[in-house]
Design a protein around this nucleic acid. Structure first.
Lengths: 145, 145
DNA sequence: TTAATTGCAAAGTTTTTGCGACCAC
DNA sequence: GTGGTCGCAAAAACTTTGCAATTAA
């Protein structure tokens, strides 16, 4: 079972030379197995299923650690709570929020990537990060596209 | 002097049928005259110069009111506190943060506007809002652009 | 062995809210 | 006049931190 496997994030942390405690392994596993964008409470809830003794303070500390090490990305969609996802070094992506359902879609666009880098350069900056979130409502079938 | 004039935002609020109290006028004036992106504490500080009796609770309530009415935009640059700017219906713009100085530059780009709308449509959504923030470091003279 | 990490509870930040007094319309 | 708004202080929501006990390397 997956219970004894090394999760994707755990391996990254090991490679980065982090001290891997049981709690960090649990949080790493939770994040590796999440396909959504959970907030801290939700990550804590999922982690507590694997280790009922884990403290939310440790979850906060671990998320900050992983975020600082660029292992995960902290997202903010304007609802006050931070959400997290695993950093994907190969494919930088953006988000589209369905404002009615709260669902979050991810999308990539190389053309946008390139254009943003150019824009930063035109303004005299080296682009080191970006955040692009679209907010939309689902088009009904037949509705104008 | 400007003290008795109707500020840009105040007029918008009047047009929207809002009840205009002295405090709302003060916050409206502060925002109208701000060319930066102040956070709540800073807005409160500036408002208190015009009305020393104003409460920060009222500043929070007024900002939420203005934001909900789309008179101002709430910005989040990842530092935990919300910042605000006057909504510009004519020219939608994006932000570039100088991560070293904390300075915020604004830029427009019709091509990006159009592309984002197309992307949303391709995903099956009507775009109703977006947020695009670039993070960069200033290029030194002669540095690769 | 020992410096780093944990759980707990206390405290720090930012924002919201209940309530009686007050004010705009 | 009266429903909306204000100031105040309390509380809510989210996040960080001090400390003694525990643990990874």
């Amino acid at each position: 079972m997956a219970d004894t496997e090394t999760s994707q994030i755990e391996q990254i942390c090991i490679d980065k030379g982090m001290r891997m405690t049981g709690q960090r392994r649990v949080v790493a596993r939770v994040l590796s197995e999440s396909e959504d964008h959970p907030d801290v409470e939700e990550i804590y809830r999922r982690a507590a299923m694997l280790d009922p003794q884990i403290s939310i303070a440790t979850v906060y500390r671990t998320l900050r650690l992983f975020d600082t090490a660029n292992v995960i990305d902290r997202l903010e969609f304007g609802d006050g709570r931070a959400r997290y996802e695993v950093t994907d070094d190969n494919a930088h992506h953006y988000h589209l929020l369905d404002v009615k359902s709260g669902e979050v879609l991810e999308f990539e666009n190389k053309e946008v990537d390139r254009r943003l880098k150019e824009i930063a350069a035109e303004l005299g900056y080296r682009l080191i990060g970006d955040r692009l979130d679209l907010y939309g409502t689902a088009l009904e079938p037949g509705e104008k596209e």
